[in-house]
Design a binder for these strands. Structure first.
Lengths: 136, 136
DNA sequence: AAATTAGGATACCCTATGGTATCCTAATTT
DNA sequence: AAATTAGGATACCATAGGGTATCCTAATTT
């Protein structure tokens, strides 16, 4: 069983929009070396590398050395921590969620929202009592 | 109930642990003036005020003036943005999630993962196809 | 009216963060 | 072997962020 990393704050890792975008990019692309991540952003290779390391420190990205290049892959597990935290506020939403969802989803999305509105959202079966701390 | 302001970044607002704590505090307490929020933290009134304003800018806290004091109240609505963003990664979890849950809730049954997850693939009614801030 | 109190507003300090530029190494290619 | 390439490592800069101290105002209390 692999042990998990020190976890340098997921919250802060995703605070930066660039890094959020990187996660999405990696999610789509699967696994990319620095060289191929870089052109997606308007900053230097070094900057991209830094961001990737921050993501890596937070456990959101896994590195794998292949030859002289390091390939980066998404690992969303630490985001479970976020989910867990968000679950604290579910109680607040449960009542107004329906009304709110209309406002939120409407703008540019076609929605067949109504259907799954009924089934009460909850947090996907996640309970706020286990440590969503990656490592699996 | 109208939608919130231009939205000065929820992600960044919750990046700070103090502010996260404030949200939880306000969630419990309901509505508090600065004076009563302050003693919960080991920093000056001014610092607390700053944090509250950041939360307020992000729409996570609502201010209400009562006499000379301003009372602050939690408003978790902007966190839906986060939920929405998190939903992007639900697909990644769907396979692992149940395994994890089994590990946590019932350490012995971890072998039955596969059949389990076909039944409970949902992410709490949140769909992964809109949201985020993407951009570039 | 005078004194007190809540808390907004500045001004300022220090550190963290995002970024570039530059150099250095180790694989790869020719 | 020589040249090229990927990307790590520093050094450095500018700005944003958390924090305190201080002053200022407007309600409240006496």
């Amino acid at each position: 069983m692999g042990l998990q990393k020190p976890k340098p704050d997921v919250y802060q890792a995703i605070a930066d929009p660039t890094r959020r975008q990187m996660l999405l990019l990696l999610q789509d692309a699967g696994e990319l070396p620095l060289k191929e991540v870089t052109p997606h952003f308007s900053m230097t290779r070094a900057a991209v590398s830094k961001h990737l390391h921050i993501l890596s420190d937070a456990g959101l990205v896994r590195e794998r050395k292949v030859g002289r290049e390091t390939r980066y892959q998404m690992n969303p597990d630490p985001l479970l921590e976020l989910r867990r935290w968000l679950a604290y506020f579910d109680l607040y939403w449960e009542n107004k969620l329906n009304a709110l969802r209309l406002l939120v989803e409407e703008p540019e999305t076609q929605t067949q929202t109504q259907e799954h509105l009924e089934r009460q959202p909850d947090n996907g079966g996640l309970k706020p009592f286990f440590g969503g701390d990656s490592g699996i």
